[in-house]
């Protein structure tokens, strides 16, 4: 097996309270290989987004990452980065797409300008270079490049989400963290976007940490899956095994709560 791109070890995160602390993530360890799609599934409050935030170093107090935790990306400990290193690290090495990312575009700036901001800050590109790169990225997500002069409100929700994904990929990150990236979208749009991401990760080689509560979708897209319950990673296996032969009772219980299209429930 090749060296993992991302290696999370003994990750423990508490939210510090006035009277007692809440353990959101409890001693979680997993690896993501280069080019792999790793899924984290679980219900709201199970800690999956807290992990995503930790990987991008987005936590602020009252969240406290306990000392025994390590998050290694290409062998470097993300938790030790200083401010400057962190600026270089975010977006260039790890990019993030959130559930409501389509609403994170600036409504008063043209799409072109929003790409330029990223490309100038991180790569020092000129206007002309940035425009070429923007056209190239928009084409990747099936949006006509001439629309870069438009504003966010002129696009549908699905197109805005694809634009955010294109901005994320513009710096060739090694890892893209996607936290419920398509939950707010319709199934057809969801399928179109994830299918495209799957093709892109095959051609560009980035890895994805994919977070969702929809197990069916996760099995379609992921290579390996981790199931979370109350801050703990209770089961971790290939997508085929999580679907075909789940071991933990909670995994079975989750499957039993999805009605099947063909009648009955999925398991």
């Amino acid at each position: 097996m090749t060296a993992p791109l991302l290696s999370v070890k003994n990750l423990t995160i508490d939210y510090i309270g006035e009277e007692k602390d809440f353990r959101a993530v409890d001693n979680v360890s997993f690896d993501v290989a280069p080019g792999e799609v790793f899924g984290l599934a679980g219900e709201s409050g199970c800690g999956k987004s807290t992990i995503a935030f930790a990987i991008s170093r987005l936590h602020k107090p009252p969240a406290l990452i306990r000392r025994e935790s390590t998050i290694l990306l290409n062998g470097r400990d993300v938790l030790d980065l200083d401010d400057k290193a962190l600026r270089d690290f975010r977006w260039r090495e790890v990019a993030m797409v959130f559930q409501s990312a389509m609403n994170s575009l600036n409504p008063v700036l043209r799409i072109e300008q929003q790409f330029y901001d990223v490309l100038k800050t991180h790569k020092g590109m000129s206007r002309a270079q940035a425009r070429d790169r923007t056209a190239e990225m928009l084409k990747l997500v099936d949006i006509a490049p001439d629309r870069m002069r438009d504003y966010p409100h002129q696009f549908s929700g699905g197109m805005r989400q694809r634009i955010v994904i294109a901005i994320c990929l513009a710096l060739d990150p090694r890892l893209v963290v996607m936290d419920e990236p398509t939950t707010a979208l319709d199934v057809v749009v969801q399928r179109e976007i994830l299918q495209r991401i799957n093709e892109l990760r095959r051609s560009l080689g980035f890895a994805v940490l994919f977070i969702t509560h929809d197990l069916g979708l996760m099995v379609q897209f992921c290579d390996r899956i981790g199931i979370m319950l109350a801050g703990k990673l209770v089961e971790q296996n290939t997508a085929e095994a999580i679907y075909g032969s789940p071991e933990h009772d909670y995994t079975k219980q989750l499957w039993a709560s999805f009605p099947s299209l063909h009648g009955g429930v999925l398991l």
Binding site: V187, V188, Q190, R191, L194, Q195, N198, D214, L215, G216, L217, V219, Q220, F221, Y243, L261, L266
Partner: peptide, 15 residues
């Protein structure tokens, strides 16, 4: 048909 084909189905892999 389109709607049904896009419903998440663990038996169908994107690959």
């Amino acid at each position: 048909k389109l709607l049904l084909s896009a419903v998440p189905d663990p038996d169908v892999r994107f690959d």
